[in-house]
Design a protein around this nucleic acid. Structure first.
Length: 882
RNA sequence: GGGCGCGUAGCUCAGCGGGAGAGCACUACGUUGACAUCGUAGGGGUCGCUGGUUCAAUCCCAGCCGCGCCCACCA
């Protein structure tokens, strides 16, 4: 016997273990068409947050759905080594122990990271299990696995040899905290309230004359090598070609004409620091200005500045520069100024444009095929609007800086000869051989110490996890994958790059669909973040309400194109839904509703059963179509509505008389039918609520070893819709609802049984009334039902179709209130009729509206008119009576 | 400066050319043998504003007003 409430804690672990023991998550168990999703690999350092919960719930819904449909489902799991993030974590641990990675060898440090991963890297995987994720765990991969590392080496070497990877010296975004280059995407622009300092630079050889420049970064003036003015700016026309003397430094710097200088901005003259500003770099290049690098890797001033500033931290230097210039009377003005400043997204420190040698991918070239693929529709985005974002970025893409000056990651397979020549090969041995051929002798080689951007290996994920570059059967069978499910925040970081690598190396897009879901925010719409303290921990919700409730909530709220504002009481509501389902199953159990192999949904005799069978088919259809269209919310809501609103609220109530008082035939049919519908419900809900549905399935029915997750998805086409049964039950429902409403409005005690009289019913109505007598009495709480007689004084009258229901409530009802109620109803219908009449009288409408719309309007008008007439009669009788 | 999205019931949101919806909250009644994590009934909305297209607009188009996000080197 099922308990009164569902207790997730007692079920989730057990059912998950059953699935795993049965190997039910493994791919390759059927000959069906493959269906593949690769998981966005969470960082090994990570723990499950709401974004993961949403992302993985949606993937699991799709995977379980398709698996039940007979597809050979592969959900490929794994984790990402997350270069900088992971190195940070381990470095922090070292710091706590009072040591530093620089105190140990690179190998020793890397060994430490691996050890850390062994010990705590599996957290998120276990948490995904708690969520119910049906990943093929046997196939779990890690971006630093041997196989995946081989893929990385091959890709790097091949792209290098195809001139799509190259080394270049240019300005990079330098992270002074981690002392590594980072890519454009890892830089976030923040609005900052700063200042605009106006400095006066003396003109060389012209005593007392100055040119004023403005800057937000005074310290960089120590690296100025020029001043630019607009060629058409008359104020400075005579200065072009002359020199200014850089204060504090004494260097003569050229005044050049460049279109970059905007006469409208500031003074119209711009200081040029080619080594520390992306714009100035270009200006400097155009005018052949010197590049003076004034910073070291920490962002401190180096030996290229006057001794007084050497070794100073950059922001301390800023203050000193301003003070020193002020002392010399060279500060013309200091304005408050709001501007954007680049910060490292992980380090949180100001990024310094810094001139270094780095490795780059020719992204513009690699972007070509992905752009075409999306244009052709070979890969489509859902919702489609994200294509624009994708195109926008891909068409303006910049070289991708892939080298990082850290230790944790894939070390770049490049070796340098003493003369600086580089040899790129998969192994040191191959590099030596290449060098030997080149030089005609053995030369010592030194390996590039840098590692690759984490996203470089993630970009290969859809094929590297399947065994590439080996031509494995899995690669052949499961690539191209089907859908990629991810958030919009990593379209550039990840989706675009998987497209580039997939198209280049596999010559086929890595997935045919990219489903982009929203962000999960807190209930006030704020982005969840640790610093704001508004993070809702999915594990907390799972503990409190169950994984199914959380999953259902996220699915039901995952409408396309809108962020999810999650609140705990929403989850509570869906926990209640789980309880409702549980109790429906409990009802079935108590009434011995067992699935029967003999039950044929199409052959029911009882009208209620014929009706619910059709409703089930409709619900299945809705859920299936919605899931096919990635409309998770519609699918979840359709299943919810059917389960609660149709099955529990009506069908189970209708079934009660048949189960307890019906003849044996009817009872057996109803038992089997209720069991069958419940099974269909369990199937429809399983992708969303795998645990509770599997638990009920196990208890209720299935033969051993037959798990719900392995059942066939409900098909709807074979199930007949019986329109006569539909009409009859719709009539019964309307009658019961109307009587209930009147009782409630008339303050009839809920427990009181009252008589009812149905007058003027036609033969079909009388038949329906008779056939559903027991149900109507029960649910409308009636004691007697008559079909003849008059309208006693003080009766309430309800119009339903051609018939009038009479509830003799003399002494109970307030006659004035009842008259008012009837008048209101009459007015409502009259208003409706007037509106439709106006339409029907409109020649344009009649001429241009489609026939079926006109027909519909006529029908509605006639129905309303008939009802109004009946109501008017009722009002007349009431008035006559009293 | 470009691009995207959002303004519908008190709250959170569906719907998106022909009858305004859900969940929660609220009100009243209710221990009717599955379920009080429940049942029954009810109140509550000029669908941001202004124009346009259309026989018909919450839905399509334009403008405006409010919000949010993404991208971009503006001193």
């Amino acid at each position: 016997m099922l308990s009164k409430v569902y207790r997730p804690q007692e079920v989730e672990e057990k059912q998950y273990a059953r699935w795993e023991e049965a190997g039910a998550f493994a791919c390759g168990q059927t000959e069906g068409q493959p269906y593949t999703i690769v998981i966005p690999p969470p960082n090994v350092t990570g723990s499950l947050h709401m974004g993961h919960a949403l992302n993985n719930t949606l993937q699991d819904v799709l995977i379980r759905f398709q698996r039940m449909r007979g597809r050979d489902a592969l959900w490929q799991p794994g984790t990402d080594h997350a270069g900088i993030a992971t190195q940070m974590v381990v470095e922090r641990q070292l710091a706590e122990q009072g040591t530093d990675r620089r105190d140990m060898s690179r190998d020793a440090f890397i060994a430490k990271v691996w050890k850390w991963r062994e010990e705590s890297g599996g957290t998120i995987i276990d948490q995904l299990r708690r969520l119910g994720a049906s990943c093929d765990w046997e196939r779990e991969r890690f971006t630093m696995d041997d196989g995946l590392s081989q893929a990385v080496l091959k890709v790097f070497v091949d792209l290098y040899k195809q001139n799509l990877i190259y080394r270049d010296k240019r300005l990079v975004n330098w992270d002074c905290k981690f002392q590594t280059a980072i890519s454009d995407l890892e830089v976030e622009q923040r609005d900052v309230n700063g200042h605009l300092w106006h400095f006066k630079y003396p003109i060389d050889g012209e005593e007392g004359r100055f040119i004023t420049v403005a800057t937000t970064r005074p310290e960089t003036m120590l690296g100025d090598t020029g001043v630019a003015v607009h060629p058409d700016d008359e104020r400075y026309a005579d200065l072009i070609g002359k020199y200014a003397v850089l204060p504090l430094v004494g260097r003569k710097i050229k005044i050049v004409a460049d279109l970059h200088a905007d006469p409208e901005q500031g003074s119209g003259a711009v200081k040029i620091t080619p080594a520390h500003d992306f714009n100035d770099f270009e200006v400097g290049r155009r005018h052949d200005l010197e590049m003076v690098n004034i910073f070291d890797a920490h962002g401190n001033l180096n030996e290229m500045v006057p001794a007084a500033y050497q070794g100073m931290e950059r922001f301390a230097a800023r203050e000193k520069v301003v003070a020193d210039l002020e002392a010399q009377g060279l500060v013309a003005e200091i304005e408050d100024h709001q501007h954007t400043v680049p910060y490292g997204d992980r380090s949180g420190v100001v990024i310094e444009p810094w001139l270094t040698d780095q490795w780059y991918v020719d992204a513009a070239e690699l972007a070509k095929k992905p752009i075409e693929a999306v244009e052709r529709g070979e890969t489509r985005f859902v919702p489609q609007q994200w294509e624009k974002t994708f195109f926008e970025w891909m068409r303006n893409i910049q070289p991708w800086c892939i080298s990082r000056q850290i230790w944790w990651g894939h070390q770049i397979p490049a070796w340098y000869a003493p003369d600086g020549k580089v040899f790129v090969e998969k192994t040191e041995e191959e590099a030596r051989n290449a060098a030997k051929i080149h030089y005609g002798k053995d030369v010592p080689l030194e390996r590039d110490p840098d590692v690759l951007d984490t996203w470089f290996s993630s970009a290969l994920w859809p094929f590297s996890t399947l065994g590439w570059p080996e031509e494995t059967p899995e690669l052949k069978r499961y690539y191209q994958t089907d859908v990629l499910v991810t958030g919009f925040d990593i379209i550039f970081f990840w989706v675009a790059r998987m497209m580039m690598m997939g198209m280049h190396f596999m010559e086929e897009a890595p997935f045919h669909t990219v489903y982009i879901h929203a962000l999960v925010r807190d209930e006030r719409g704020q982005k969840m973040s640790k610093s704001k303290g508004n993070v809702i921990d999915p594990l907390h919700l799972i503990d409190k309400f169950g994984a199914d409730a959380l999953r259902f909530t996220l699915s039901a709220m995952a409408a396309q194109g809108r962020d999810i504002k999650l609140s705990e009481n929403r989850v509570e509501g869906y926990r209640n839904f789980a309880t409702k389902l549980w109790n429906a199953a409990r009802f079935c159990e108590m009434n011995v509703c067992l699935p029967s192999d003999d039950f044929e949904p199409g052959n029911c005799r009882e009208t209620v059963n014929r009706w619910i069978v059709g409703e089930t088919a409709r619900a299945s259809e809705k859920v299936t179509q919605a899931l096919d269209a990635y409309k998770f919310n519609e699918a979840a809501n359709a299943a919810y509505q059917f389960t609660w609103g149709t099955f529990c609220d009506w069908y189970l109530e209708f079934s009660k008389p048949l189960l307890t008082e019906g003849g044996e035939l009817a009872r057996e049919e109803t038992r089997a039918c209720a069991a069958w519908v419940l099974q269909q419900i369990l199937k429809l809900l399983h992708p969303f609520m795998p645990f509770i549905t599997e638990e009920i399935w196990e208890r209720q029915a299935g033969p051993k070893n037959s798990m719900l997750m392995q059942q066939d998805w409900p098909g709807s086409s074979a199930i007949p819709i019986d329109s006569e049964a539909d009409a009859e039950m719709a009539w019964v429902i309307e009658l019961i609802s109307d009587v209930r409403a009147v009782r409630s409005e008339s303050n009839v005690p809920a427990g009181a049984r009252i008589p009812m009289r149905l007058l003027n019913g036609n033969a079909e109505t009388l038949r329906r009334l008779e056939a559903n007598d027991e149900v109507i009495r029960r649910l409308a709480r009636l004691d007697s039902v008559e079909t003849e007689g008059g309208v006693p004084t003080g009766s309430v009258q309800i119009v339903i179709g051609e018939a009038t229901l009479v509830l003799p409530l003399a002494g109970v009802i307030d006659l004035d209130a009842e008259r008012a109620r009837l008048r209101t109803q009459i007015d409502k219908h009259a208003g409706e009729i007037a509106k439709i009449d106006k339409k029907l009288a409109n020649a344009n409408f009649m001429a241009k509206a489609p026939e079926h719309v006109i027909e519909e309007q006529r029908d509605r008008r006639n129905d309303a008119d008939a009802t109004r007439a009946k109501l008017a009669e009722a009002l007349e009788r009431l008035s006559a009576a009293g």
